[in-house]
């Protein structure tokens, strides 16, 4: 049996993990501060970009995706594909709907103070 524990040791070096941890904390403070600047539509874009960077750091290094091969990567790629399909068709449905088919058009659903 090849002992891979030795070879894998470098993947979890405490120094690098600590660095990624610090970057994640800085990004957390940054995303909060930027959200207070009222940048209009950019608020959403910036917040989501930072979230994607943070999630990628966690997945790639804390979850070691960077070092995984073959079937594990395939499983993740497929999960992301399903996620994309679900989000895409839900948003496409809402954005292309006949307006009166939306709940906002129904006073029973939104109450007397509707839009």
């Amino acid at each position: 049996m090849v002992d891979t524990a030795e070879a894998e040791h470098d993947e979890l070096s405490p120094a690098r993990s600590a660095m990624i941890y610090l970057v994640l904390l800085v990004l957390t403070v940054a995303t909060y501060s930027l959200s207070r600047l009222h940048l209009g539509t950019w608020t959403l874009v910036i917040a989501m970009l930072i979230a994607i960077v943070k999630a990628s750091l966690v997945a790639l290094f804390f979850m070691q995706l960077w070092y995984h091969r073959g079937s594990v990567r395939l499983a993740i790629a497929i999960a992301v594909l399903w996620l994309f399909l679900l989000m895409f068709f839900v948003v496409a449905d809402v954005k292309t709907r006949y307006p009166l088919a939306n709940p906002t058009a129904n006073p029973m659903l939104v109450g007397p103070s509707g839009p």
Binding site: T28, T31, Y32, S35, T43, L44, A47, M48, I50, A51, K54, A55, V58, A59, F62
Partner: peptide, 15 residues
């Protein structure tokens, strides 16, 4: 669990 929160945090609290 951490990754899910990383997305919940901006969507619910920041935008």
């Amino acid at each position: 669990v951490d990754v899910i929160w990383i997305f919940l945090f901006p969507l619910l609290y920041l935008i």
